[in-house]
């Protein structure tokens, strides 16, 4: 297993895009984690009179590196805490959808039969609706809010994991090492989780990275439509939506969260994409 990961790391290193993506991903995670240390104010702290100040403004004894919003909150602090929200959203979406999706994919690929048919039908069904629309249906039922948005986006992301793992299991389950495990009398569960699953790790990491970016983007879109996180949560999509009416006079209020979303989503996509290329044996041989 250790060898497997060191090989994986070597593959990643060869791809500049993946490395750049990974660096930004790490930077984003570090910033999110140390947000309380490097933010100047609490995310919902209102500084009276400091309304919509442009980046780099001084106001009394305060200094606002990225400016303030329409009710006098420091944008830099809000964006940092927003990174925490995005990290939480991305991780939750990936954990929920990868956890359930992987289990479903393993079981349906391994056992086949009616279970497989039901799972595949359900997944086709989720995929029939575009992601944001499906999320809208779920939010319409559960009501707006960050948790419901996360749940909705996770359900939408399920088929990606289920189909990926199922295909992987179908490819692996007739290989000699699995048959050998059978002959040794290993239980189905052991074969699934100890033998087959480790061989699905690489594509799973790729999908997790792409799933993270999709999760952040979709949750931000729901936030923008007023269906995700609600004010005063410093969620980037919601912040952007609240700042919309000030686009002409205070564009920094719109641009700062927008650029944050773009950079985070782009770095996860860059990492996932580069990793996929690095792992794809067909592309590797072609040089």
């Amino acid at each position: 297993m250790k060898e497997y990961f060191s090989d994986l790391w070597l593959d990643i290193q060869k791809n500049k895009g993946a490395v750049a993506g990974l660096l930004f991903v790490l930077l984003f995670m570090i910033l999110a984690i140390i947000a309380p240390l490097i933010s100047v104010y609490a995310p919902d702290q209102v500084i009276e009179g400091a309304l919509r100040l442009p980046p780099g403004s001084r106001f009394q004894e305060h200094f606002f590196i990225l400016g303030t919003d329409d009710i006098g909150r420091d944008l830099w602090s809000r964006l940092l805490y927003g990174a925490r929200v995005s990290l939480l959203v991305g991780l939750s979406v990936v954990f929920i959808s990868a956890g359930i999706g992987t289990t479903l994919g393993l079981l349906s690929g391994y056992y086949g039969g009616w279970l497989d048919r039901i799972v595949i039908r359900l997944m086709d069904f989720v995929m029939a609706l575009p992601s944001v629309l499906f999320a809208i249906v779920i939010v319409a039922v559960l009501g707006p809010g960050l948790l419901n948005a996360i749940l909705a986006v996770s359900i939408v992301a399920l088929p990606n994991f289920t189909r990926l793992i199922r295909a992987q299991v179908l490819a692996e389950k007739n290989k000699p090492y699995v048959q050998a495990a059978h002959l040794y009398g290993a239980s189905s569960l052991r074969i699934l989780f100890k033998e087959i699953l480790p061989n699905c790790i690489a594509p799973l990491i790729v999908q997790a990275s792409l799933g993270f970016s999709d999760g952040v983007l979709n949750c931000a879109a729901l936030g923008f439509l007023g269906l995700g996180a609600q004010a005063p949560t410093p969620e980037w999509g919601t912040m952007l939506s609240d700042a919309r009416s000030y686009i002409e006079t205070s564009p920094w209020m719109v641009n700062a969260p927008g650029i944050c979303i773009l950079v985070v989503v782009l770095s996860f996509n860059l990492f996932g994409d580069g990793l996929r290329d690095a792992l794809d044996p067909r592309l590797k041989n072609r040089g």
Binding site: G17, S213, L217, A220, A221, F224, G237, L240, S241, R244, I247, E248, P251, V254, N255, P257, G258, I259, I261, L262, V265, L266, N269, L270, D273
Partner: peptide, 25 residues
Amino acid sequence: MGGSLAGYSMPIFWWGLALILIFSV
């Protein structure tokens, strides 16, 4: 391809507002 990955990652609700800012405002 870098540009297309950026396009694929674009939060279009911000992209729209940014274009309005540049081309309309």
